[in-house]
Each structure stands twice: as C-alpha cells, then as structure tokens.
Simulated assay, not measured.
Amino acid sequence: MDDQLKRTQQGVLFAVLAYIMWGIAPIYFKALGDVSPFEILCHRVIWSFIFLAVLLYFTKGWGLIKTTLKSKTKVLYLLVTSVTIGLNWLIFIWAISVDHMLDASLGYYINPLFNVLLGMIFLNEQLRKMQWFAVALASMGVLVQLIVFGSVPIIAIGLAVTFGIYGLLRKKVNLDAFTGLFIETLVLLPVALAYLFIFADTATSHLTNNHWQLNALLISAGIVTTLPLLCFASAAVRLRLATLGFIQYIGPSLMFLLAVFVYGEAFTSDKIITFAFIWAALILFTWDGLNNNANNKKQAAVLKQTAPLDVEVTTETLVQDINSADKNANQQGK
C-alpha cells in the first residue's frame, strides 16, 4: 500500500511538472520573437531528434526503434502522426508569435472534448448523457462566436483537431511516447535540415551569424520539447487517466493567465462568452467522470463483498472489470 501511495505521489509530481512546463512554454517562444515560426519549428525538430538520440544511446533503446521500423503498419501511422504533430507545433508557435496565446489556450481546453468525439466516431465509444451535454455546450460557445461576432476561433480549432487526431493515431499505433517522438522527428528531420541549410535566408537562419544567446535558445528547443513529454510519460504509467484528466487543465490555464496578465492580450467579449461555454462544458465533463468513477467503485465494493472467500479480488481489478463491461455493453449498443 505504501509503495502504491509513493508511486501515485511520484505520478502526480511528474504530471504537474509536465503540464507546468507546457503551460509556460509560450515564454520560451516569445523569447524567440525575431525568428520566424517555421524556422523555430525546424530547430525544434532537429534538436529534439538529437536530444532523443542521446537519451536512446544511454538508455539502450535502439532495439525498440529497429523493431518498430520493421512494422509497415506502425511506420505508416507514424508518418501521419509526424505531419499532424508538426502542424500542431507550427500552429502553436505561430499563435504565440502573433499574440494569439488566448486562442492557443482555448484550443487545449477544447481538446479533451474533441477527444471524446473522436473516441465515439473511430473507437465505437458511446457518450453518456452528461458528456453529450458538455460537447453541446462547447459547440454552442464556438457557434456564438461565429454567429454573433462573425469570427471563427481557427487557431483553437486547429490546435484541438491536430492534437486530437495525433492522440487518436498514437493510440492506434500503441507505442510509447519516447520511441514514437524519436521516429516522428526522424521523419521530419530531412525537411527541417533542407529548409535551414538550403532554403532559409533570414537574419537568424545562419547560426554562425547569431549571438550565442540566440543559438542557446534555439538549441534548447530540444529540451523544451522533450523534457515535459518524458515527465508526462512517467506520470501516465503511475496514474489513472481520471487523475491525469484533472491535472491537464494546468497547461491551458497557465497559458490563459500569461496571455491576459503578462502579455496583455485583450480578453474581448467574444472570447469571454466562448471561454464561459467551454469552462462550463469542462466542469460538467469532469463532474460526470468523477461521478461515473465513484459509481464503478461502489459496484466493485459490492462485488468484492459477495465474492467467494477463496478467491482473491482487488478493488482495482473489479473497477477494471466493470469499466470493461461498460465498454463492451456500449459497443454492442445496449
């Protein structure tokens, strides 16, 4: 029990660190304001690849890389995820550079709700009534901004869609984040190298002409990209998804606070209304998840009490069985 508690505490710490780093990442990209977004993206790919390669060398993880590259199906999935994560990074970097951090924050608030829709469409997951209501509220927030104010939160939708599709495909390929990211950066590496060393011709594209502080920032892109992901991966194996679901709102919340109180982005009436709908949807969504988890635990406790004495049954196992049964029932349309 003590070991499990320690493991959970470690998971919470890793998760909080990951989402704090993601939440304050805009500070880093703001510091690169003189560098074009696509140029920053190329540096992000190159230095992430190098950083991951060094880590793989010390952790002796090349065996899994070779095994993965031999699977045509996994390679095909990773080719697509490379494009989607590259687009997600580019949209995010561009949003920060043009003072649309609020829209980036909104995109990552929308993402969990978009993931629910993707699960329903592609994984045959059925939505509970409260989940449907949460998705409807979020949709209303976007529609109000479109109809009343005549604007579409393109950045927010773009970030939510690209990251949602990325998550769905990575779930399909069933590969750890570390190995997957290395292969994804490997796929994007030729494009990044070609752009920086052949096509790019800006004041910052030649490292030998830059000040050492700027080059240090550009090289740090590998750490800024990889370190929070490693923390997240460590958290994911120690925590339940419900717990991670709570902690994930740290990221967009920090972005929101930075945008409004540090960088002075205007929190206009259209954004106020849209955010209000999204926040209300997330409150309902989270409450529904908690309530469903509590009900499953109650059922597990009842089953544990009625289980035969000669059979060892744990609450965690029973909750997993109940969740599995719920999922199977939903897939059968019951």
Rank of each mutant, 00 (worst) to 15 (best):
A242D: 13
L229D: 09
S220M: 15
R238E: 11
Y249A: 04
G222Q: 11
P228V: 13
L241P: 06
L244C: 06
F199S: 07
H206S: 15
N215L: 14
L239C: 11
F182H: 12
A236F: 08
R240D: 15
I223R: 02
Y195G: 12
L189M: 09
A235R: 04
V237C: 10
F178N: 04
G222F: 07
H211L: 11
T225D: 00
T225S: 07
D176A: 04
V191W: 03
L230I: 14
L254E: 03
L186K: 01
T243R: 00
G180L: 03
T243I: 10
I198G: 01
T208R: 01
F182R: 10
T243F: 05
T204G: 07
F261I: 15
F199D: 02
L181E: 02
L241C: 10
Q213W: 10
T179A: 13
I247L: 08
F182G: 13
G180W: 00
L227H: 00
V262I: 15
T243G: 06
L241F: 14
P190M: 14
S234L: 14
I219Y: 01
V262M: 11
L229E: 04
N210A: 02
I219A: 13
W212H: 12
T185E: 01
T243Q: 05
Q213K: 12
F256H: 02
S205R: 09
G245N: 12
F182K: 09
L241Q: 10
A236Q: 12
F256W: 10
F261M: 13
N210K: 11
V187C: 09
F256T: 08
I223A: 11
V191F: 12
A177N: 13
S220P: 07
A235N: 04
N210F: 11
P190G: 09
N174G: 14
I219R: 02
L214P: 05
A242H: 07
V237Q: 07
L258I: 14
A200W: 02
A236R: 08
I198H: 05
A192N: 08
D176T: 06
A177D: 10
V237F: 01
S220R: 04
L254W: 04
R240L: 15
L230C: 08
I247H: 00
F178L: 12
F178E: 09
G222N: 05
